[in-house]
């Protein structure tokens, strides 16, 4: 039997005016038909930091993440505001394709295209209108280096991406996202389908990417959250319950539900 927790008592931090923010949501709510999946999420994501979203299955963390680059369009109704560079990107007339180029996403299961490694990276770039071969080659090299995959694949760029291992595929998906030169990178449980060694590699990659990108990562794995993130938000049944610096969340959780979840005596 799941314990009942009050949704009234939350501990959500806000940031001082001098902290540069990459993305901020204001009263973000998500509905799947009549199902109210996300209640009033007010979160701000500081630039060039990794923010982890944790919580049990069905807590709404992936739903929230997918709303940030409008991947829930046509699937769910999202209300509230998403502030990105002083623009509310949750407005209906916003160019969602443009938004998704600025806010990239990596999914739970590696989903490289059934194309060569090189094509995986440059296909979307060409669709965007970049035709210069040198520019494309440079992007391929930069993004694969950024995803720490270059040394493993530099001689096999024209081989099928599907021949790579799961961990390599996931890093290719990261490379494909950063090749678009986004500001923000959303990762939806990127390591849950990977073995521990691949997971370490992806985590190392993320630690390096933090210098250039703002990263928001959903994870089931609390150790992972504590290893890589500087901020951590805890979701419970469609509510953001606690949002604090990661070190604080794992040493000194503010409210009972977070305490129980982190100590494993949840539910």
């Amino acid at each position: 039997m799941l314990k009942q927790y009050s949704f009234e008592k939350t501990a959500v931090q806000s940031f001082a005016d001098n902290v540069p923010l990459a993305l901020r949501t204001e009263n973000l709510q998500v509905f799947y038909g009549a199902n109210h999946a996300m209640h009033d999420a007010n979160l701000a994501f500081p630039k060039n930091q990794i923010t982890a979203l944790i919580g049990a299955s069905g807590s709404g963390k992936s739903t929230y993440l997918r709303s940030l680059n409008r991947m829930n369009d046509g699937i769910a109704t999202v209300t509230g505001k998403i502030w990105y560079h002083d623009v509310d990107i949750n407005e209906p007339d916003v160019n969602i394709y443009e938004i998704r180029r600025h806010i990239g996403m990596v999914f739970q299961r590696p989903n490289p295209f059934a194309k060569s490694i090189r094509e995986n990276i440059i296909y979307a770039l060409r669709a965007e209108g970049i035709k210069d071969k040198q520019v494309l080659a440079q992007r391929v090299e930069e993004s694969l280096k950024g995803a720490a995959l270059w040394d493993e694949v530099k001689d096999t760029l024209d081989k099928s991406a599907l021949a790579l291992s799961g961990g390599q595929q996931q890093r290719l998906c990261i490379a494909r996202s950063i090749a678009m030169q986004p500001d923000v990178l959303l990762l939806d449980e990127p390591c849950s389908a990977l073995d521990p060694i691949s997971t370490v590699k992806v985590e190392e990659t993320l630690a390096q990417l933090r210098e250039k990108y703002t990263i928001i990562i959903v994870t089931h794995n609390m150790q992972q959250a504590s290893r890589i993130s500087s901020q951590c938000a805890f979701f419970h049944l469609g509510h953001v319950m606690e949002y604090t610096p990661t070190a604080k969340m794992f040493s000194d959780p503010q409210i009972p539900v977070t305490q129980d979840y982190i100590s494993g005596s949840f539910g």
Partner: peptide
């Protein structure tokens, strides 16, 4: 698989593309 479509959309490609 559906995740191929999501991959395309998440890179800012149109549904048609």
């Amino acid at each position: 698989p559906r995740n191929q479509r999501e991959a395309g959309l998440s890179l800012g490609m149109s549904k048609w593309k």
